[in-house]
Design a protein around this nucleic acid. Structure first.
Lengths: 345, 345
DNA sequence: TTGTAAGCGTTATCAA
DNA sequence: TTGATAACGCTTACAA
C-alpha cells in the first residue's frame, strides 16, 4: 500500500469453472423435487414447514441464488426497471435518480441506469441494450425524437420525465409557479424586458420553458425575447453575454443553472456588474449554484419527487402493485439569491 | 401544452397483449428452420446469401429483436457490464461513468449503473440485484467491506476503482504526485503544519489519502495531523472549521472538494480569511469548485481514464477481447487556484 | 448449407 | 402438499 498506486492484479484471479448451483442441486441435497424448491422459494406458507426448512437449509448451504434470466424466461418479468439519463454530469439529474431508486427498491425492483452523454444516438443504443431486460422504462429529459420514443413505448411500459409525447404517460414538474414568481420578481425590480436564453432545440424542456415564460410575460405585460438555441454549457452561457449586453438586456432567464453560471462568470471580466447591470436567473438549483458570487437566483424543481412519481406510475402500468394513489405533481418555486436586483441608478 | 403541467396519461395505454416475435415467427415467415435464423443472426457469412436475405427480410418485417434473457440461458453471457456507484451526486463520478460507458460501448457491451446513496446496505442489495444479470462488475469507491466484495468477486469477474482488496483487481489513480505537489506548494508558502480533514472511515480512498499525505509529510519534514472521520458533505466541512481555528491550523487538505467548499464557505461568517488566515486544498476538482470565492485549489485525478481502464481490465478478465495492452494508470496533479496562499503578516 | 433435437434454469399446469 | 412434465426463446452439437 504505497503512495505509488497502479493497476494491480493477482494473476491468480480467474473465473471459477464450477457454475452456480441450480434448483436441481438444491433439490438433490434436500431430497425433494426441483419444483418443490421453486415453490418453497416463491410461495412461502403453502408448503409443509418441514420440507420448507430442509429446502432453505440446502439452499443456504449451496449458497443458491436464483438465476434471473432463467426466471424471466417463463414469467416474462425481470423485476428490473430501466432509467435513461441524457447527461450524468447535469447535477439536476441526481435528485431524479435518488427518487426513482428508492421508489423502485421499496417495491422490490432493481433500478438500472444508463447515461448517454447528451447524444440521442447513444441514448437509442442504450435503450436497445436494456429494453428487453427490463419490465419498464423511464426516460428522463429524453433527447430521442417522438417516433423513436413511441417505438420503445410499443415494446415496454414507459414513462417520460420532463418531456411530453402525445399519447404517452409523462411526469412533468409544473414550471409555471416558479416562472410566474421569477417574472413578477424581475418586474418588481423594474425590468421591462426579459430575455430567455434558450437551451438546445432538442430539449423539450427548453422549448416548454420558453413557452411558459412567453405566456406569463404576455399576462403580466412584460416583453419577452428569446436568444438561442444554445448548448446547455458554461461556455455557451459565457459566449452569449456580449450579444445580450449589446442589445441592452437588463434581465436574463437562462435555460438552466449551468448556462446561467457561465453567463454570470463571464460578466466581471467584461465589466458587467451582476446584478446591478444585469439580473440573471437560472433553472434547477444545481449543486454549486450558490457558490458563485453573487449566488445565483434560480427556479427550483423538487426533483426527488419527479423520479419517485415516474417509477410509481410505471409500476402502476406494469400492473404489479395496487398503485393509483393520485399524487400532486411537483411544483417549482423561485429561490431568490444575489444575482437579481434593481437596476443601478 | 399549457404552462400548467402535470402527470398526464392517455388511459388507453396498456401493455399490448401480443408478445414479442421469436425466431420461430421469423423462421416461419422466412420458410426456414429456427436454428437457421439463429445462425444467420449470429454467424453472418457462413450462410447461403439467399436464405440470409430472406431471414433478414422476415426479421425486419416482424421487427424481431433477440431476447437477451433467452440468449443468456444457453450461453451464460449477457453482453452487459454493471457499474456500482456509491453516490451519483458526487460530481467526480461523472467522469468515471463516461469513461466506462464508452469503453463498454466500443466493445459491444451495454453498461448498466446502479447508485447506492452512500449506503453500504443499498450497495449490497444493488449488487445482488444485478450480479447474475451481468458478465462482470465494476465497483467504484465501494463502501462494502472486504469480505462482501470477495463474495461478489467469487461469483463474477470484478474490478475495483479507487479501492484495494487483497487478491482482487483494482484500478487506482496515483494520488502521490498531486499530493506531493500540494504539500510542497503549502510548504513553499510557509506552512509548517498541515491538517488532513478526513472523510468517512468506510472510505478506503480517504484512508489512502491520509497515508500518502503522512508519507509525503515525513519525507519533506512537514508536520501532518488528521482530523476526523467526517461525513463527506458541505455541512461536515463547515462544522470542522471551529476546531481547526482553535488549534491554530493554517493549512488544510480536505478529503474531497465538497468538504473543502463547506469549510471555505463557513470561513467568512466566522471572520476567517481564506487564504490569508487559512489555506484550503480539496480533492477531485468537482463541478463548482472554481465558482467559490476564492476558487478552490484542488488535486485533480483524470477520472475518465479510471472508468475506461477498469472496463478494459474487466473485459480482459471475462476473456472476450485480446486486451492486455498495459496502460499507464491515471496520475493526479495539483490545480492551484485562490484558496491557498502565504500567511498574512 | 440447413434441419433436428437437446439443453440452459426457471415457472406453471396437471396429476397424484 | 408434492412430483412429473411441458413450456419459455435461444444456441449448438450432430446429422443430413
Amino acid at each position: 500500500m504505497e503512495g505509488k498506486s497502479q493497476v494491480s492484479a493477482e494473476p491468480s484471479q480467474r473465473r471459477k469453472p464450477r457454475s452456480a448451483p441450480t434448483i436441481y442441486d438444491v433439490a438433490r441435497l434436500a431430497g425433494v423435487n426441483p419444483s418443490t424448491v421453486s415453490r418453497t422459494l416463491n410461495t412461502p406458507g403453502r408448503i409443509n414447514p418441514k420440507t420448507e426448512a430442509k429446502v432453505h437449509a440446502a439452499a443456504r448451504e449451496l449458497r443458491y441464488r436464483t438465476n434471473p434470466m432463467a426466471r424471466a424466461l417463463p414469467t416474462g418479468r425481470t423485476e428490473t426497471l430501466g432509467l435513461l439519463l441524457p447527461d450524468i454530469t447535469n447535477p439536476m439529474i441526481a435528485g431524479v435518480v435518488r427518487g426513482a431508486q428508492s421508489a423502485a427498491f421499496q417495491r422490490g425492483y432493481t433500478l438500472v441506469l444508463s447515461e448517454s452523454q447528451e447524444s440521442s444516438e447513444f441514448e437509442s443504443r442504450a435503450a436497445d441494450g436494456i429494453l428487453r431486460s427490463v419490465d419498464g422504462l423511464v426516460l428522463a429529459a429524453s433527447r430521442l425524437d417522438d417516433a423513436r420514443i413511441r417505438e420503445l413505448a410499443d415494446e415496454r411500459p414507459l414513462v417520460l420525465i420532463n418531456r411530453e409525447v402525445d399519447g404517452l404517460v409523462s411526469v412533468v414538474g409544473d414550471v409555471e409557479p416558479g416562472i410566474a414568481e421569477a417574472v413578477a420578481h424581475l418586474q418588481l425590480l423594474g425590468h421591462r424586458r426579459i430575455v430567455y436564453l434558450s437551451g438546445p432545440d432538442s430539449s423539450w424542456m427548453s422549448r416548454h420553458r420558453a413557452e411558459v415564460i412567453r405566456e406569463v410575460g404576455a399576462r403580466r405585460n412584460v416583453e419577452i425575447s428569446v436568444v438561442g438555441p444554445n448548448a446547455p454549457t458554461l461556455e455557451a452561457g459565457a459566449a452569449a453575454l456580449p450579444r445580450l449586453v449589446e442589445s441592452g438586456t437588463t434581465a436574463v432567464m437562462a435555460y438552466n443553472d449551468v448556462m446561467a453560471i457561465g453567463l454570470l462568470r463571464a460578466a466581471k471580466p467584461l465589466g458587467v456588474d451582476v446584478p446591478h447591470d444585469l439580473s440573471i436567473i437560472g433553472f434547477d438549483d444545481v449543486f454549486g449554484s450558490d457558490f458563485t458570487s453573487p449566488p445565483l437566483t434560480t427556479v427550483r424543481m423538487p426533483l426527488l419527487d419527479l423520479g419517485d412519481l415516474a417509477v410509481r406510475r410505471l409500476l402502476d402500468m406494469i400492473g404489479g402493485e395496487a398503485g393509483g394513489e393520485q399524487v400532486e405533481p411537483p411544483v417549482s418555486r423561485l429561490i431568490v439569491r444575489g444575482s437579481s436586483a434593481r437596476l443601478r441608478g
